[in-house]
Design a protein around this nucleic acid. Structure first.
Lengths: 107, 107
DNA sequence: ACGAGTTATAACATAAGTGTTATATTTTCC
DNA sequence: GGAAAATATAACACTTATGTTATAACTCGT
């Protein structure tokens, strides 16, 4: 039986662009998933986070689904509530949870 | 004679929105200026950096002028060539020069 | 003062992200 | 299994960033 890794490896051999696309996909998923994790670690629902940041729930969902990259000001709004630091390099991107200035304004 | 700080302070008293606008402006200028500094520290011209990143010189100029926030993928392209890490929190943003993987493909 | 290289501006088409509302789908808990 | 909360999708107008070309303005060295 073929492993996932083996399969990926073959694809890359056949189609070099695959690697690029994969890396991009993983990055996007990366920040998306980390946003969700950070929010959950703070015990907030999407709706609550939305209220606290002045955004709407579907926008949070969109970001966490990796539909697109969050823009700079959006990230800062989120970080303001979630507490955390974004670290971005050429090939990786992650959110580091920092102070847990947790939302008093809960539901 | 009035100092710059005094002036700013007065403005904020008169017009609360001023503080907000100022903070925003400073952030934008922040990343913009740091991008320029990082590029210069690597001894690259805008044109060279543009070539190395597959962008065009005016786009580099635009970013360094603070006309707008660079988007995620743009930042990663730049970091790939300049070497550096972006650190973003709710109220600050700076580029940290790291490895100086300097462009062999000079002019 | 000239010319080369560098940086800045302007303009416009395209792409990507946001704000918003409405509605579906999934989870959770009784 | 049904209600309530939570999350996801879809659609649309609007804003922001990019890609591009052309061209202006500035800086230096000669």
């Amino acid at each position: 039986m073929k492993t996932h890794k083996q399969y990926i490896h073959e694809q890359i051999k056949k189609e070099p662009k695959f690697a690029e696309a994969l890396a991009k996909a993983e990055q996007e998923v990366g920040i998306a998933v980390e946003l969700a994790r950070l929010r959950e670690s703070r015990g907030l629902s999407q709706t609550e986070l939305a209220k606290l940041t002045g955004m709407k729930q579907p926008q949070i969902a969109r970001l966490e689904s990796g539909a697109h990259f969050p823009a700079f000001p959006t990230l800062q709004k989120l970080l303001g509530v979630l507490g955390g630091k974004l670290e971005l390099t050429a090939d990786a991107c992650h959110l580091v949870p920092t102070r847990a200035k947790l939302a008093s304004a809960r539901r």
